[in-house]
Design a protein around this nucleic acid. Sequence first.
DNA 1: AAGGCTATATATAAAGA
DNA 2: TTCTTTATATATAGCCT
Lengths: 194, 194
Amino acid sequence: MVHPLGRTSMGRQRIEIRRIDNKERRQVTFTKRRGGLFKKASELALLTGASVAVVVFSPAKHVYAFGHPSVDAVLRSYASVPGEAAAVAPVPVHGGSGGEDVDLLGLRLAADDTGAQVAAEHARMRDVAARIVQAKAGRRFWWEADVDALGEAELLEFVTALKKLRDNVGRHANTLLAPQPPPLPLQQKQRRRR
Amino acid sequence: MVHPLGRTSMGRQRIEIRRIDNKERRQVTFTKRRGGLFKKASELALLTGASVAVVVFSPAKHVYAFGHPSVDAVLRSYASVPGEAAAVAPVPVHGGSGGEDVDLLGLRLAADDTGAQVAAEHARMRDVAARIVQAKAGRRFWWEADVDALGEAELLEFVTALKKLRDNVGRHANTLLAPQPPPLPLQQKQRRRR
DNA sequence: AAGGCTATATATAAAGA
DNA sequence: TTCTTTATATATAGCCT
């Protein structure tokens, strides 16, 4: 309804882009802006045909994600990008010594899209052994290999590599997310229109 | 300068949210909106303390990413989220039979953050063997295990699991990104202010 | 914690430099 | 192509319900 006199609202106010102190208002802003972000992501994909993936952890550590054509498809592609793959895998150690207590080793399926030029790619990865060696020496994509083609020996090498990886991960308590398996809200948003 | 008479611009026009046909316009829109999307993501993170990761592949398949505190940190967390991890790993096959030709097996380092309640977590994953079995039977996180603790036997089991994974991936030529190692533009955007 | 509402801050489609 | 300039479409902060 209409208000006979005077402004009925102060309208949108300008705010500083820095942490909102008030907890509830921070939550409200989170919800509103998360929606807006997903909408923008969706529009970008639709308008330009771009692939987009957005992953958000709320202040309460709940997960929200949007992706076109899908979050996983985009992240898989991302993982297969040279520079990025390297960035994700080797995780530099800043602590030091080694792994005394048991830590998880998280592995994640990444690339291998059966695209048109996969055939061409095949050539350069024909020799798995060479690949592993090359990989151990260098940095990226060493973990790519045709497991079937590996013999017991290479297989061991492979596992060794995995262990090494585990060690490298070691301790970097900088991350934000604390593992919370049981009560997981999780909500995959996959589409939005107007 | 000013235009003596009449509108000097038609101003922003309303557009339908569907693929822009004109190639150059599409490119311009992509650039503008990508910037906007990253800015929004940045503000969301700053205002609410949320963790955000945005990965975008341009129509030309160039990669652009934004993340707070970092793309990798967020994606690692994402990978460790039960529901999501499962979604990424098992990739349902729609084709059918098996894997006759060689495909890559992409593995990706994922979780294990040394958070505060890791200790509590430790309990439930004390017995690695049990974990593997349990995993093989069920669906998610079967690939999590302390490699060091595995004996030859379990080790083989582990690899078998990996092969299975490879098979599951099999054929799903739906992805968008065609592998293009050499000429990769890549640009990590990590910050934005105004 | 979710939805409206209003008034305003922002994002951007077009066109020009 | 990439950066301005307009003029207008959208996103949202503060308030209410």
